[in-house]
């Protein structure tokens, strides 16, 4: 991941030294700058040096603001986590609820409606959904703000500001979660132990919640975990669209302005969070499945 991020920025046709030196610089000045940045060294050596610095948490400095990259990340990671949590906190339960309803009412009208919605949700581009929200809720009705972060989450303004981005980012997640829940639950509802539960005289609601869904959570968590990359990608788009001061928007800004250290740092942190979330999923998985927890 580190390598991919690094290489991606290598193939960008812009030369960071040229950008940094500015349009008025002479070729000699650019060359001197390139040497001082180590850009004249072979690519593999640059990577090794970069790796060494990363391990010491030295991600370099932003070429534009000259603040330490690590500091920039520290400032933006909070809002990103905030946005992700605010999206997941409603999207995952809603997705599970809809998927459960669809599975229980399999083949009936409710199932078809829910699945139609979730297909629409899956195939809808996130920016399109966000734009619609901005257009109608933000601009036309002026119900909610759609630019930036209003303040900490516990303040009313903070809450008002996060609604639209969180609805946008979470909105594209509901459909996949619903589909996965439906599939996993249908699978589990045919299991022998569900029949055992029914044979015990357990009421159908409890059969679904206590016996089936509890087991279906294992594949659901796995599948949701696999979608985390998708969610991170969505966060980048959402943050840019809503001027949300997170890592994603920072990454986009850094890339468009060819601020290489900052872009590299942002990609790095996105990669690290991807790994961190996957570890979290594994922990959750072990908690849900006694066959793993007890090993």
């Amino acid at each position: 991941m580190l390598l991919i991020g690094f290489l991606l920025l290598q193939v960008v046709p812009t030369d960071p030294a040229t950008v940094l030196a500015g349009p008025t610089a002479t070729p000699a000045e650019v060359q001197a700058l390139r040497e001082s940045m180590g850009l004249d060294k072979p690519v593999w050596l640059q990577f090794v040096l970069y790796l060494g610095r990363v391990l010491q948490f030295d991600l370099g400095r932003s070429m534009i603001s000259n603040t330490a990259v690590i500091e920039e990340i520290g400032n933006t990671i909070g809002p990103t986590i905030e946005l992700m949590l605010a999206s997941l906190v409603w999207a995952v339960p809603l997705g599970i609820l809809l998927g459960t309803l669809a599975a229980v009412r399999r083949g009936q009208l409710l199932d078809r409606v829910i699945m139609a919605f979730s297909v629409a949700g899956v195939s809808m581009p996130i920016f399109w959904f966000g734009l619609i929200l901005i257009q109608y809720v933000g601009t036309a009705l002026e119900l909610l703000p759609f630019q930036g972060r209003g303040g900490p989450l516990w303040s009313l303004d903070g809450l008002r500001h996060i609604v639209l981005p969180a609805v946008t980012l979470g909105g594209v997640f509901v459909g996949p979660v619903a589909r996965m829940t439906r599939t996993a639950l249908l699978d589990v509802l045919g299991a022998d132990y569900v029949r055992t539960a029914r044979a015990k005289g357990v009421a159908e609601g409890s059969v679904v919640m206590h016996h089936a869904l509890r087991n279906a959570m294992i594949p659901i968590v796995t599948l949701v975990g696999l979608q985390i990359g998708f969610l991170l990608g969505g966060a980048v788009v959402t943050e840019t669209m809503f001027a949300w001061p997170g890592v994603g928007r920072m990454a986009v800004g850094a890339i468009t302005s060819a601020d290489f250290p900052l872009a590299q740092g942002a990609i790095l942190i996105l990669a690290v969070s991807f790994i961190a979330i996957n570890i979290l999923v594994d922990v959750l998985y072990a908690m849900l499945d006694p066959r793993i927890a007890r090993r």
């Binding site: 299991a191 022998d192 132990y193 044979a199 015990k200 005289g201 509890r214 087991n215 006694p290």
Partner: peptide, 28 residues
């Protein structure tokens, strides 16, 4: 009715199945 049957199932009539490996709920 379904609810009347539930009061009988597992209470006055109960059943064991062929597949012991899969008939118990793995998470309880």
């Amino acid at each position: 009715s379904a609810s009347e049957l539930r009061q009988i199932r597992g209470n006055r009539i109960s059943m064991i199945f062929q597949e012991p490996m899969t008939s118990l709920n793995p998470v309880h």
